[in-house]
Structure formats: C-alpha cells, structure tokens
Simulated assay, not measured.
Amino acid sequence: MKQVYFTAGPAEMYPTFEHHLRTAVENQLGSISHRSQKFRDIYKFTVEQLHTLMDIPDTHAILFTGSASEVWERILLNCVEHESFHLVNGSFSKKFYEYALSLRKYAHKQEKPFGEGFDYAEIEVPEYAEVICVTHNETSSGVQMREPDIHKLKRSNSKKIIAVDIVSSAPYPELDFGVIDTAFFSVQKSFGLPAGLGVWIANEKCLAKSERLQKYEDATIGAHNSLPALWKNFKTYETPATPNVIGIYLLGKIAEDLNAIGAETVRKQTEEKYKVLNKFVESSSNFSPSVAEERHRSRTVVVANTKKPSAEVIAQVKKANMIVGSGYGPFKESQIRIANFPAVSLEQVETLIGELKKMEY
C-alpha cells in the first residue's frame, strides 16, 4: 500500500506529480537544449505561474539554482561586501550565518534558543550590516516569523537588503515583494516535487549591489551562477549552465495547479489543517507543542515534543503507512515533525491524528 509522507522534505509528492512527470517523459524534455525555444517557453511559463501564485512583481527576477542552500552562498557573495546580519533560532538559520563566516564576511547574529521566535520590536539591526537574513519558517524547530514583522523590519531598514528564507513555507506566506528584496525556496517541500531545484527571487537592488561588487579588485561574486550572469540569461528565459529542465517544467505545472485552486484557498486549507494538528498536540497526553508561543508556531511544519522516544512514534504510524519525521539534530529522539504541505489533505491529517491518538491508551 502506498505510504503518505508527512516529512518536512523530501515530502509527499503533489497529487498531480505523476501525471506531469509522464508528460515530461513523453515529450522527451530531459533531452531538449536549454538554448532552445522549447526550454525558453517552459522557463517563461514557470515564471508566469509563480508570479501569479506568489504575487511577485515584474521587478523581480526568478532564477534557478541546484538547491536553496546554494542561494545562501549566492546572496552572501553577490549582496554583501563586508557585513551581514542574521536572525538565528534553529539549525538552518544558523547555517546561513555559518556560511557567511566561511565566506569571510563579518557576520552579526541575534540568537534565540531553539524553538523561540522573533518579534519585530525586539530586533536590533547593526548599523553597518548590508543584508538582513531572515528565516520565515525554521524547518528544524517549527518556528515561523510573521509576515507583518518581516515587512516592518525592512521598512525600518529601507537602505538595507532583506533576504527571506521561505524554503519550507512557500507558497504559504503572503509576502509583499514590493518590500522584500530577495527570497528563496526549494521544490522538495511545499511544492511536492523531487529535490534538485532551488528558486531564487531577487530584485534590481540586489543586482545593482552585485554589479558594483563585481568591479572591485578585492571582491568576488563567484565564478558560477553569479547574479549578473543569471539575470542576463533570465532576460531571454535561459540559464548560464544546463539546468534541471524537467524540474523547472514540473514546478510550473504544480504552480499552475495551485493557481487553479487559488493562493488564498491554499492558505486557508493550510490554516485549517494546522488548527486540527495544533489542537491535537495541545490537548494530547503524549505530545506537547515544542514552540511555546502560539503566534510563533509554524503553519507548515508542526513540531511536537514526545513523551515516548520519537522512534516509537514513527514506527507506530508507519504500520498505518504514514511517515512522520523525527526531531532535528539534538532533538531527534524527543520530537517529531509533521509537514503540513499542500500535497497532504485534511482527511490524511485526520487519519494521522487518529493513529497518534491510539498511542494514548
């Protein structure tokens, strides 16, 4: 029997994935040239669907990389001359900070304990930081930063670039890209696709900074997939190097499917499933919310503390052909993570909760 994946990425494939993959294979998309009109049409279609789904203005380029992790490096090389600032409250926001250190940037951080979130009023941005690095949804800890707080942070630091990690939440967050300079995600989470494609959204402010750095003798913006090279190719819907053509095609088709539902409906469905999961975790005798403040709890990755070892919980639900994730890093044995992505239905979430309830007796 087919298993249902509630893992935080790779995750459950979107229901229409198989159909679109068969179409890609039948049309031999794995063999076409990335300099062909056929590919340009695929790239253009995917960009148009993402513009609609995420309300991205034409001022922003949509660029493709091998992963979201690669985008950390691209942003730091192309947009930071000296100093970056990072909000750190989990393993992935910490990695973004550590990437900056490894690239010899002067990286500042404001750090919270694992499982705690940031509110706008408490954030102190260093005067000379050029880029503010924010994680909207911390996949490791299940903490989410509210969009209004992100927007306020940018508006009060208008001369700085703000970079938002939406890896495990896009397309759920309602970000104002009239305010957000750059954001990025990968496709193996909320878009329900196989891994191997990163998506980088960047505006002309980012491009201008990169082009300025490119002129400095003592600076490097990278030899591969620099922002000016990606942007130049984007103008004709091409890429500097051979891309993941099938991945780009599939992303466009899934985005089209989500547009048929409507972004607002996708958000409402996500909220509905979250409320059911959250209510169960709050009232359970075996589980408890790992994030104390409800306003900071992720709507797309629900993390729960477990009284029993997480391995026992995972093994129990696996008997019912459902896969949930363990906690991240040091919390592997004491937490579970349940992905609440569009590929998973309310009925499947309720079935999972039914299995988890059996452990309470």
Rank of each mutant, 00 (worst) to 15 (best):
I180V: 15
P173Q: 07
S186L: 07
G192L: 11
S190G: 11
V167G: 03
A183P: 09
G192C: 11
K205V: 00
V179P: 05
D181R: 02
G196H: 08
E211A: 02
K205F: 01
F191V: 04
V199N: 09
L193E: 04
I166Y: 01
A208Q: 14
E174M: 10
F177Y: 15
F185Y: 15
L193T: 02
L213R: 06
C206T: 09
S186G: 15
L213G: 04
S210E: 05
F177L: 03
V199W: 06
T220G: 12
G198P: 06
I201G: 03
K205N: 13
L197P: 08
K209H: 01
T182P: 06
G178I: 02
E211Y: 00
Y172M: 04
K189E: 13
G198D: 05
E211T: 04
A183G: 09
G192Y: 13
E204K: 15
F184P: 05
F177P: 01
V179A: 05
V167C: 14
D181Q: 03
V179K: 01
E174K: 14
Y172I: 14
A195I: 09
K215D: 02
K209G: 00
A170K: 02
P173C: 07
I166A: 09
V187F: 10
D181K: 03
G222P: 08
L193Q: 12
G198H: 08
D218Y: 11
G192H: 10
F185K: 05
V167M: 11
S210R: 10
S210K: 11
S210Q: 10
D176A: 06
D218T: 13
A208S: 14
F185V: 10
L175S: 04
A170Y: 07
S186I: 06
F185E: 04
K209I: 09
R212V: 00
G196R: 08
K205L: 07
Q214H: 11
S190E: 13
E174A: 14
L193W: 07
F184W: 15
K205C: 03
L213W: 07
T220K: 04
P171L: 11
S169C: 13
I221H: 03
Q214T: 00
K215H: 09
S168I: 10
G222E: 07
V199D: 07
N203H: 08
P171D: 07
Q188P: 01
R212E: 14
G222D: 07
L213Q: 04
E204C: 03
A219Q: 15
S168E: 14
F177S: 01
L197W: 08
S169K: 05
I201W: 04
K215G: 00
V179R: 00
F177W: 09
S168V: 14
R212F: 03
I166S: 01
W200G: 00
F191C: 03
V199T: 14
A202K: 06
K189Y: 08
E217W: 10
A208D: 11
S168T: 14
P173L: 06
P194F: 05
S186W: 04
A202T: 12
I201M: 07
A183V: 08
Y172N: 00
A195E: 15
E217P: 00
D218Q: 11
F177E: 05
A195C: 09
A202E: 04
D218N: 14
